[in-house]
């Protein structure tokens, strides 16, 4: 059992939690993820590690309630326990093992979409702690869905916010803003790290391929075990099949077959909503907390 020691609402349907899991906190590195099982009947839900505190032994997750399992998790409060919490899973970000002096010469842009802002924060902080200030774009549909702006501003070099409806910051998609920065403002980047919804990563990669800027993405396919045992998470990267949970989750975005990845993400959609009639998920029928 893994205790929830802190919980914050960051935006409508987006919350963060600090979970007591000392071993995971001890080993966690930027880019990795965990798997959470809420209760005995729960499914294995992969979530990016958004922060970790080795002293307190806690790991921070930020969750967007999109379906049954994430809604179930939202009902948990400080003092409650999750049944299972396992990690860290996946490969750490590539740059973690790069030569620091080389890295310091590089200009880096982070592009965060929606709840993807959460995993970008510790990565931006990782650079900041090493004396590198990266540029960060936070993109969201509308102002109230912009999360972690203040925390991010403390670790980022330049922080840009874009909202689709223009209710805050730059009006438009993150792709429009990237174009603006690179084409109009003369910014040069050696590489981009983009974390957000699959569809956003697809279009960012389309653009950055044209612009010739290497782009790393963090994929979030359907997963079961997260250890390489089931192949549910397979993605095509440069015409090779990779298991995102062990080979990734971060990949060279210019090599990812996004259309296949988007399609594979929908595999269990109808299945879950079919159970018990219209849009009632499996977990809402029985599974108690």
């Amino acid at each position: 059992m893994y205790k929830i020691v802190d919980k914050k609402n960051l935006a409508p349907n987006i919350f963060s939690m600090d979970i007591l899991a000392p071993r995971v906190a001890q080993s966690a590195q930027p880019g990795q993820f965990v798997i959470v099982i809420a209760d005995e009947k729960g499914e294995r839900v992969p979530l990016t590690i958004c922060d970790y505190d080795t002293e307190k032994g806690t790991v921070t997750i930020v969750v967007q309630s999109t379906g049954c399992s994430t809604k179930k998790m939202a009902e948990y409060n400080v003092g409650d326990y999750f049944e299972d919490f396992v990690g860290p899973l996946g490969q750490p970000s590539e740059y973690v093992n790069e030569d620091l002096n080389e890295l310091k010469k590089k200009k880096v842009l982070f592009v965060a979409g929606g709840v993807g802002t959460a995993p970008v924060y510790p990565q931006a902080r990782w650079f900041h702690e090493r004396g590198i200030d990266v540029d960060v774009i936070i993109g969201a549909k509308t102002k109230e869905l912009v999360i972690l702006e203040e925390k991010m501003s403390k670790v980022a070099g330049n922080l840009y916010v874009a909202t689709d409806d223009g209710s805050y910051g730059f009006k438009g998609m993150v792709t429009n803003l990237i174009e603006d920065l690179v084409k109009n403002q003369g910014k040069k980047y050696d590489f981009i790290v983009c974390i957000g919804p699959m569809i956003m990563m697809k279009f960012v990669c389309k653009l950055t391929k044209e612009l010739g800027i290497k782009t790393i993405v963090s994929l979030n396919p359907i997963m079961v075990d997260g250890t390489g045992m089931c192949g549910a998470c397979r993605v095509s990267v440069g015409n090779e099949t990779k298991f995102a949970c062990v080979d990734g989750p971060e990949f060279d975005g210019h090599l990812v077959n996004f259309d296949e990845a988007l399609r594979r993400q929908t595999q269990y959609k109808s299945e879950e909503s079919e159970k018990g009639g219209q849009h009632v998920c499996k977990c809402q029928q029985g599974g108690a907390k």
Partner: peptide
């Protein structure tokens, strides 16, 4: 699917039981 995915969903995650959350196709 791999047999491992199919069997894991069913056996370990008990997808064959309605009251468990994990879906199976």
């Amino acid at each position: 699917f791999s047999a491992n995915e199919f069997l894991t969903r069913n056996n370990l995650m008990k997808a064959f039981k309605d009251e468990y959350d994990t879906p199976i196709k």
